[in-house]
């Protein structure tokens, strides 16, 4: 199955490990993620002012690329556009929803982009988690060679996968999709209500302490609920929860650091793929000691 794929800027740099692991596990599941030709930055945040149409152009342009891919035969009648980064997912999907619900806005946007083909409104923006869900977590389970037994992982969703409701992929107050994934991977399930609390997002640029305070709360509650590690799907959440542990440690010297994974890294481990795909060198808190302690790595089943 070939599916159009939108990487977004951070997946090519700071979160390259997210992409390498995702592409590898997707392949195992029989999904070929075909990168959009000529993609551009989606804008990372959805513009919220009522009159601010121009800022949706960036997002819609990427949707037009999907039409082109179909026209060029790069994919076969496949209008689902997959993202890994939750922020890109949210921005693209909110723009898409606005276009499909407001034909007038769509017309205006198409006028603004008169050099492009018109956007026809057929694209469906999907997060990889959703795509896997559609495929069935039993398919994931079939690929598991190295179950994450004994690993207690708290899923973290943050905001962009869940809210607002029109674009969320799960119940915003009680999301379960990652839990189902983690169960399929053989990990132990941790229920923690802080999994939907915002990490502070872009406030990290303005005031890192604001964010490290929030991260401290989120991580401490995960620890209290018994977690050894966190799983997530957004490079910005990853930065705030992982890298900002440096700032947490400055304020709370007794804080016990906790590794933060992209869910695809966990999938790669469970699928028995080589650690190379996981790029743990890009993780701030090194997860390897935990993984060895639990016997997930260090065995001989890596490829």
């Amino acid at each position: 199955m070939k599916v159009p794929y939108y990487p977004g800027c951070t997946l090519k740099t700071k979160a390259a490990n997210f992409e390498t692991s995702a592409l590898a596990v997707a392949e195992r599941l029989g999904i070929e993620l075909v990168e959009l030709p000529r993609w551009n930055c989606c804008g990372t945040v959805y513009s919220l002012a009522d009159d601010d149409l121009i800022h949706h152009v960036a997002a819609v342009r990427n949707l037009i690329r999907v039409q082109e891919m179909n026209a060029q035969g790069l994919v076969d009648d496949e209008y689902r556009l997959v993202t890994l980064c939750s922020m890109c997912f949210n921005t693209l999907k909110q723009a898409n929803v606005r276009m499909s619900e407001n034909p007038e806005d769509l017309e205006k946007i198409n006028d603004l982009m008169y050099l492009e083909d018109d956007y026809e409104g057929r694209v469906e923006v999907k997060h990889l988690l959703e795509l896997v869900d559609e495929l069935g977590f039993d398919k994931v389970e079939e690929q598991v060679k190295n179950p994450l037994e004994g690993l207690r992982i708290a899923p973290y969703y943050g905001c962009m996968l869940l809210r607002p409701t029109e674009v969320g992929i799960d119940d915003p107050e009680d999301p379960q999709i990652q839990t189902r994934m983690l169960e399929a991977l053989g990990a132990e399930k941790i229920e923690n209500p802080y999994r939907k609390v915002c990490c502070g997002s872009y406030q990290t640029v303005q005031d890192k302490k604001v964010v490290s305070n929030l991260a401290y709360d989120i991580l401490t509650h995960a620890r209290n609920a018994g977690a050894d590690a966190i799983s997530l799907s957004c490079p910005l959440c990853a930065f705030n929860l992982d890298s900002r542990q440096r700032e947490i440690k400055e304020d709370h010297p007794s804080f016990r650091e906790i590794p933060v994974f992209y869910f695809t890294q966990l999938m790669a481990m469970a699928f028995g793929l080589s650690e190379d795909y996981c790029g743990f060198d890009l993780n701030y808190i090194d997860p390897e000691p935990l993984l060895s302690a639990k016997g997930i790595i260090g065995g001989s089943n890596g490829e």
Binding site: E191, N192, P193, Y194, H221, N224, A225
Partner: peptide, 8 residues
């Protein structure tokens, strides 16, 4: 706004 508990 919300009810939260680490221990159910």
């Amino acid at each position: 706004a919300e009810a939260l508990a680490d221990d159910p």
